[in-house]
Amino acid sequence: MDALLLQLLNGLDKGGAYALIALGLTLVFGTLGVVNFAHGALFMLGAFVAVAVNRLLSFSVQVRDESITFFEAYKQQPYLEIWFGDLGLAVIAWSVPISILVAIPVMLLIGLAMERGLIQFFYKRSHAEQILVTFGLAIVIGEIVKVLFGANPIPVQAPPAVAGPAPLGAWLGLSENLVYPWWRLIYLFTSLLIIAAVFAFLQFTTYGMVVRAGMADRETVGLLGINIQRRFTVVFGIAAIVAGVAGAMYVPILPPDYNLGMNFLVLSFVVVVVGGMGSLPGAVAAGFLLGVIQSFASMGAVKDILPGIDQIIIYLVAVAVLLARPRGLMGRKGVMET
């Protein structure tokens, strides 16, 4: 029972990341009609915003180490510690949450630049060409990050207050031994929050209503005198923010390297297709579903019966869904068929 609950949480966690990326992918596809293979790169860029913020905050200077007296010793001391003492150290420790605040404007800028600089020229071209050019862009972004940060994964810690395990069992009245990392719980709730925010934005604001109208019939909305193009560009920016924040938050769970985006992109595309191309609830549901399925498949008991199933389960599910229900779980008929 405990093990099942843990796996469920693990799966929801992973599913949260999948869902956030897939949500952005679907938003971009639904509004601009562009298949964006560089969306994983945005996730990766978000993660590296967190790394960069951490580096920036812990920028340090070499000072004499006073605690060692019998020889001349030096240590690195962050400027923030020198200037603000303990407060500075606390700021460094909380670099990941801070980086989320930084990631929002940064990712918005990157998203807008990407849309205006490249994507807008590909609205009218075939999906194959969109895939190819964004695939090229993803390679370029990955390589630039590699030049700046090196090829190795860079670990960044979660704030110490929430780095440890949370006594989940005690809260739920189950066994005391049932614990779960705090940060992963936070990740799960934040991703739910972001998803809710995006849906609320689309559903309950006038701006979102116009965007939805544009998704349904772009031409008519344009004829009503609304600059729907600009709103779609903003939606691309929002998708970039969602992916970036998801990436920044994921850093304490998985140290990012320049390939992170590609790895998540493949899975996210599977998620989008399973959920149904163009369906936002489908993308979210499929993200969590596949995360949970993958997590259950990696349980020891399951692996004893079907060895290696955890490696291929997502793809198996994708194949099964696509063959049994071609348009995905919640997709509309005829989207992206040709």
């Binding site: 895939i131 493949v266 994708a318 040709t338």
Partner: peptide, 19 residues
């Protein structure tokens, strides 16, 4: 299937083989 679904299906099979 055709279109992007075909691409994803072939990708899925290749990834299964690889894994």
């Amino acid at each position: 299937r055709s279109g992007i679904y075909f691409a994803i299906l072939t990708l899925a099979f290749a990834q299964m083989a690889y894994n």
